[in-house]
Amino acid sequence: MPLRLPDQLPAIELLKNENIFVMDESRAHSQEIRPLKIVILNLMPLKITTETDLVRLLSNTPLQMEIYFMKLKSHTPKNTPIKHMMMFYRNSQELMKQKFDGMIVTGAPVETIPYENVDYWKEINNIFDWARTNVQSTLYLCWGAMAALYHFYEIPKYQLERKMFGVFETKPLEPQLPIFRGFDDSFAMPNSRHTEVKREDIEKVKDLHLLAESPEAGVSIVSSRGGREFYILGHLEYAPNTLDKEYKRDLGKRDDVEMPLHYYKDDNPNELPKVTWRSAANLFYSNWINYYVYQETPYNINDIK
């Protein structure tokens, strides 16, 4: 089954070129079955890139989904055309009048700023609280994960001496859980961050469960509330060339730019990246949609509590 996306969203044509079945709103009106409602709070600067990355993964399921994009009132993005935001994004206040089967909160380029100093911190706290009673299951990614862990559980973040940058082996600690169905004993996950949360802080909170960890990158996936919230410190959604673009964008502009680890063939940035995380990414998102959104959500979406 296809994803149901807003008419003319750039991701539609991009994904059709990858032979991924997507459906715009006009064609979807003939579908009588209720699609799952998924809302994405996209805080990344290059919004079209992030939209495409997430839609690519959400499309790998037989379930029909209706995708909504949420924007903040207290922050105006600088790297995405205003026309695009007006066409495809809706204000948080408007969308928070509804209930959703699933939600994704992305990372944001503000991780070195104290949480309380982020200009949209108050608004995003309201969104976090709203999601707890109006969304069946939420994925928090990278900075979004650290921010939510701090908001709900006062888990601090720590500045890293060097950027966690590359693709790192990650091990499921509870492989029997449905979220890891089909996974191998370890999987690869891209990371690109300057801060971290620590295992000892997670273990102090009985409601938090450390689900995956990396020998190099540390805490990787945490859950709470029986899978109604997942906190992912890495970027399974990244496209093959995302880390390459980031590395070459910053090279020469700063003196602390290091090559992403375990990423290029023969560790040579002149070679193509080795794509080692795609299968795990597709499995993770498919398992999330199937076992934590679709099978857990009430038949009547207004019954979500």
Rank of each mutant, 00 (worst) to 15 (best):
L251Q: 14
G234Y: 05
P260K: 03
L236C: 09
K245H: 12
K265C: 00
E258C: 02
D266H: 02
Y247L: 12
V257K: 03
T242F: 04
G252E: 14
D250M: 06
D256L: 04
T242L: 12
K265T: 11
L233P: 05
G234W: 06
N268C: 05
P260N: 05
L243Y: 06
E258S: 08
K253E: 15
K253N: 12
Y238N: 04
K253A: 09
Y247P: 05
L243D: 07
D267G: 03
Y263A: 01
K248Q: 14
D267V: 03
Y247F: 14
G252N: 12
L233D: 10
K253P: 02
P240T: 10
L236E: 05
E246I: 10
Y264P: 00
L261A: 11
L233E: 15
I232M: 15
N268T: 03
D267W: 02
N241W: 14
Y238K: 05
K245W: 09
D255C: 07
D255N: 11
L233Y: 11
E258V: 13
L233G: 11
H235P: 06
L251D: 08
D244M: 14
L261G: 00
E258L: 11
G234M: 09
G252Q: 12
Y263F: 13
Y264H: 00
L236W: 08
D266R: 01
R254N: 11
Y263W: 04
N268I: 03
R249S: 14
D250F: 02
L261V: 15
K245M: 12
